[in-house]
Design a protein around this nucleic acid. Structure first.
Lengths: 159, 159
DNA sequence: GCTTGACCTCAACCATGGTTGAGGCCAGAG
DNA sequence: CTCTGGCCTCAACCATGGTTGAGGTCAAGC
């Protein structure tokens, strides 16, 4: 079984796929969309640096929270491009995501509370109900958050 | 301006669109997907009963929470088919949705808390972190929840 | 009886987030 | 030196949630 040659610090696409639990096709897709990067061997094969595993984990985690790839890409673009991100760099991103999450949780809670009122009055339909009059719910997420949680095949990170 | 003839209890698709803030094309789409129903006039035009406004409001509200049309349809299928749903019928649905919402909020909170830990340790990537090891996050939502909140054009229910 | 606007159907198209398959290259092992 | 597994590209396809446009009908009003 001819296995591709790699140095200690490089991973093939297959290795990243195995270790991250993400399909090769998805990795290609993420690369096309600018979420991850690779170098190429003389034979035109992709090689990923180890921190790609972190990036992929970050991508998946973020998707779980309902964030679009575009938004995730924008977040990742904040990472330093010319050095390997430090734990501190990741911590900054995580902190930003926490804020995101707090906001989303607050929205859901507001919705839930409105819904409770609606249960009381049976009004779930018109003008009275905040739920159905959501001009005050906050900002712009665009389309594309495909799932809130739990995609069909989830086993990110075996190792 | 020839306006379609309607009785007091029937609404044209245009009226439903205006009052619900949902595009006519979306109403057609919902009907194809079985989320709403209409009768037809002799001239083959749709007529909606008034509780369609409630249904549409329910659909939009549910979409805001990230629930797919398929799931919404299944919920609506629980409504009595041969009589107009009562406030109580709607209350039962709303209660079910509240449970849904509670679960989603709990998920997001768990994710957020994991994330906070990750910030502490800078681990956001591998095996250690619950966030990236989500085999325990709960159930099956399938694909398709397109947005968590706030679509681009939100003005449901003017009247 | 013609115009006009609201409505109809059906097919094509858009974006997101991917997967699948065809056809081909590269490299290590026998 | 060939076989084979892993990788490559590119195009097509899938689902969700719709929108857009072409071409045609229906009915109120002048």
């Amino acid at each position: 079984m001819p296995r591709p040659h790699t140095t200690f610090h490089e991973l093939t696409v297959g290795q990243v796929a195995d270790r991250s639990g993400v399909a090769i096709s998805a990795l290609h897709f993420y690369e096309r969309k600018g979420l991850i990067r690779s170098t190429r061997t003389a034979g035109n094969q992709r090689r990923y640096s180890r921190d790609t595993l972190r990036r992929v984990a970050f991508i998946r985690a973020s998707q779980h929270v309902g964030i679009s790839l575009t938004a995730i890409r924008e977040a990742l673009d904040q990472l330093p491009s010319e050095r390997t991100p430090t734990p501190d760099d990741w911590a900054r991103l995580s902190a930003a995501w926490r804020t995101e999450l707090d906001a989303r949780i607050a929205q859901l809670q507001a919705l839930r509370d409105d819904l409770s009122e609606c249960i009381g009055c049976g009004c779930l339909s018109l003008r009275v109900c905040h739920l159905t009059n959501p001009r005050d719910v906050l900002g712009r997420e665009g389309a594309g958050a495909r799932r809130l949680l739990s995609p069909r095949t989830d086993r990110v990170n075996q190792g």
